[in-house]
């Protein structure tokens, strides 16, 4: 008997008495091999391929979304800067407008005041002129009246006897009359 045969016999005896941790069953091995081939085929078709493609799709969509989000963020940043500039310009414009309005208002005020002053002056002057002309008219009327009364007096005097005392009294009377008018 060959050495290997003897060894086999030895192992066979050992296997009968003691359990063998390395017991190798061709049934189980063949079955496992076939089943594993079925395993890998079926699982690849039903699970791994769809799962892998789903994961890849998700990866792609996530990275796309990140890209677009970054692009959007950039755009927003630019817009923000733009609007901030616009806001600053608007504020500046507003300040300028207010200053201009103030200046205009002051000018208008001065003009109104000046106009009002001038108008007042003009009215006063006109009033003075009116008074003057009224006075002149009154004086003229007075002179007329004086002349008239002088004539009346003279007529009276002529009719009456005129002495110096009466003469003096008449003059005095007419003077009093005058001053009473004035």
């Amino acid at each position: 008997m060959s050495i290997i045969g003897q060894l086999n016999l030895l192992f066979a005896e050992a296997a009968e008495s003691e359990p063998d941790a390395l017991a190798w069953s061709p049934d189980l091995a063949l079955f496992t091999l076939l089943l594993f081939i079925v395993f890998i085929t079926v699982l690849s078709y039903f699970a791994w391929k769809p799962i892998m493609s789903a994961l890849d799709e998700r990866e792609k969509s996530v990275s796309d979304k990140i890209d677009s989000a970054e692009a959007n963020a950039d755009r927003m940043e630019r817009l923000k800067v733009e609007y901030e500039e616009k806001l600053a310009a608007a504020a500046e414009d507003a300040a300028q407008m207010i200053a201009e309005a103030k200046k205009d208002a002051l000018l208008v005020k001065d003009k109104i005041l000046a106009d009002a002053g001038a108008e007042a002056d003009r009215q006063r002057e006109r009033a003075i002129a009116d008074i003057q002309s009224a006075k002149d008219a009154a004086v003229r009327e007075l002179a007329q009246k004086t002349v008239d009364s002088a004539i009346v007096l003279a007529g009276d005097l002529v009719r009456k006897e005129i002495n110096s005392d009466v003469h003096k009294q008449l003059i005095q009377e007419s003077l009093d009359q005058f001053s009473g008018v004035n």
Binding site: A15, S25, D27
Partner: peptide
């Protein structure tokens, strides 16, 4: 079967 190799019986286990 011999040694650790068990005989093939087409057994379902």
């Amino acid at each position: 079967g011999s040694g650790s190799l068990t005989p093939m019986k087409l057994h379902l286990t």
